[in-house]
Amino acid sequence: MNKIPNQIKYVIWAISALIFILFFSGRINPFGLNNSVHQITGYFFGLAFANLDYFIISSIPVFGMLLNSKRKEFKITDLIKDILIVLLFVTFSLLLGLYILTYIGKPSPLVAQYFISEPFLLYSTLIILIGIGMPFIIKKGSNKT
């Protein structure tokens, strides 16, 4: 991370802190798409997103900065690309996690069949962490060849 200018590091840390404060205060809710997802898929996903999930998601710019620090030279466009790559992988892993949840979710005999809940505690956290880790694994694998 030595190649990234300090001003840009401070801006990224401030953006991450601001996003977390907005999540924590309830001003923004990235998971408020339940009605849209329910209309599209026919399932209502009962996921429990905790403050840890909000902290991890608000740290996406920091993880993008860490991914960018693996490059040989710093460019602001590459930094933006890396942040977007991490964001896309997290989005893809969440969608894939919801799809997997349709098969392994715990249906309850007391509620309707379209309601699916998490199979274990911190399922959403694990899916988000997998989405953040994938770009780093791919980048590490591409550097070996």
Rank of each mutant, 00 (worst) to 15 (best):
K139R: 13
P135A: 08
L110Q: 14
S58V: 03
Y123F: 07
G131C: 04
V86N: 01
G46Q: 15
I138E: 15
S108E: 09
N35Y: 12
S117W: 11
L129W: 00
K81H: 08
V111H: 13
L52Q: 12
F31E: 09
Q113D: 15
Q113I: 10
L88R: 03
N51R: 06
F45H: 06
F115N: 02
G32Q: 11
G46I: 15
Y43M: 05
Y123H: 06
I28W: 02
S36E: 09
F23S: 08
A48M: 09
L122Y: 05
T125L: 08
I100P: 07
R71K: 10
G46N: 10
P135Q: 11
L94R: 11
K70P: 08
V111A: 12
L98H: 06
I104T: 05
L101D: 14
I100L: 13
L121D: 09
I137A: 05
D78K: 01
S58H: 05
S117M: 11
L67G: 00
G26V: 02
L129G: 00
I137L: 05
K139W: 08
I127C: 02
L88D: 12
S117A: 09
G131R: 10
N35F: 14
S117P: 02
F115T: 05
L122Q: 12
S59H: 03
Y103G: 07
L84V: 01
I80L: 04
I128F: 00
S59C: 02
L47P: 06
P30V: 12
N34M: 14
I127P: 06
L66Q: 01
S108D: 08
I127A: 03
Y114N: 10
T102S: 04
F45N: 11
L84Y: 13
L122M: 03
S69N: 12
F49W: 13
G64M: 07
N68P: 00
L122H: 14
L88Y: 04
L22S: 06
R71C: 13
I19L: 13
K139T: 04
F49N: 12
F63C: 14
